[in-house]
């Protein structure tokens, strides 16, 4: 009854294999850049790649929380746009009104997260459709709100400067997202809350029977996710200075692609914040490389689509199953050889 995975080392390889493919992908992509588009790897290139990675990663971390509960969030563009507009509208170029603006934008995001979370968690509606509809509603609200925001309005200059200000060689926003990623990893690894959250995602029915308050965790997942989207809208507004109404548009599919390529289980439970960050980096770098190569912008969509499908083919559950099956295959072969010996043991 033994199989090859009786070794702890192999077990950890199988367990972590779902997060491996993204790092291998980054390595291959860096090599490809080095050979065919060295301009991608210059310092100037990275001053746009890293902030863009951070924005994509921040949205993807929110998406990751939703995916961990077994859902997929399609409301990211709406939340980001609304949060960006609220920041600009309330702060209105004045530094002293920035805290109020940020607090309001985050508060609105949390409230919207509470609504989506309640619809999915308590009323058990399909997350895909709920977030699609919520995204529409939120975008509608954002459009209405945009009428009150003057066209030339922008974020306070001090805030815009802070976003891109370098600290130890990297801009502030890059550090911020890196810290949030690490924080999420620590929460899921070391805290009671994170562990229970993961279990609820892995099997909500069992978690409920075991006495966990499943609905609460689902609502909290959406609230935290929306908080991250809101934050993303705010920092993106700061980066762009004068945000447009389509600011959120690229963040519909991008975060999903990042989460999937990062090796998250789409049935819930398993995901890793650092590899999600890595997947965001992968996608942005890929995009940058295509741009350096002079391919049309329209190709971006195709690439994202292919990246998602490719990610689903090579990462996550499929790779774990593949590796586990090949290990069992080897052990079955070994076992047939040792069958006589085993029979003898059982007879005693």
């Amino acid at each position: 009854m033994k199989n090859l995975t009786t070794s702890p080392l192999l077990t950890s390889i199988v367990v972590s294999s779902r997060y491996l493919s993204v790092w291998i992908g980054i390595l291959l992509l860096l090599l490809a850049c080095y050979w065919i588009a060295p301009a991608t790897l210059t310092r100037t290139s990275f001053t746009t790649v890293l902030p863009l990675t951070s924005f994509l990663a921040l949205a993807a971390l929110g998406q990751m929380l939703v995916v961990m509960t077994g859902g997929i969030d399609l409301s990211i563009p709406g939340v980001m746009t609304l949060a960006a507009l609220v920041t600009v509208g309330i702060s209105g170029n004045l530094d002293e009104r920035l805290p109020v603006a940020i607090a309001t934008a985050l508060g609105v995001s949390l409230l919207l997260g509470l609504i989506s979370g309640t619809l999915v968690g308590v009323l058990k509606l399909n997350p895909l459709i709920v977030t699609l509809a919520m995204g529409q509603i939120i975008y509608g609200v954002a459009l209405a709100y945009a009428d009150n925001v003057p066209n030339e309005a922008s974020v306070p200059p001090a805030f815009a400067a802070w976003i891109t200000a370098p600290f130890l060689g990297l801009s502030n926003v890059v550090w911020m997202v890196a810290i949030i990623s690490i924080l999420l990893v620590l929460i899921f690894r070391y805290t009671e809350f994170g562990r229970k959250f993961q279990s609820v995602g892995a099997n909500p029915h069992a978690a409920w029977i075991l006495g966990l308050r499943v609905n609460g965790y689902v609502i909290l997942a959406y609230m935290t996710a929306y908080l991250l989207y809101g934050l993303n809208g705010i920092v993106l507004a700061g980066f762009l200075r004068s945000p447009s109404l389509v600011l959120g548009a690229p963040y519909l599919l991008g975060p999903i692609a990042a989460v999937v390529i990062a090796g998250a289980s789409l049935t819930g439970g398993l995901a890793n914040a650092i590899s999600t960050w890595g997947a965001a980096f992968f996608l942005v770098l890929l995009n940058q490389m295509l741009r350096v190569l002079g391919l049309p912008t329209a190709l971006q969509f195709t690439v994202f689509g292919i990246a998602i499908i490719g990610g689903m083919v090579i990462s996550g559950d499929r790779i774990v199953t593949l590796i586990e099956n090949s290990l069992i295959g080897i052990s079955r072969f070994k076992k047939n050889n040792a069958e006589d010996e085993k029979g003898g043991v059982q007879a005693t």
């Binding site: 279990s199 892995a202 099997n203 029915h205 069992a206 978690a207 075991l210 006495g211 439970g269």
Partner: peptide, 19 residues
């Protein structure tokens, strides 16, 4: 479906109620 978290490890499954 009702007792275990299949994708999680033995340790995670064992201690979930008594963390």
């Amino acid at each position: 479906h009702e007792a275990l978290f299949p994708v999680l490890g033995v340790r995670n499954n064992a201690t979930i109620q008594v963390l």
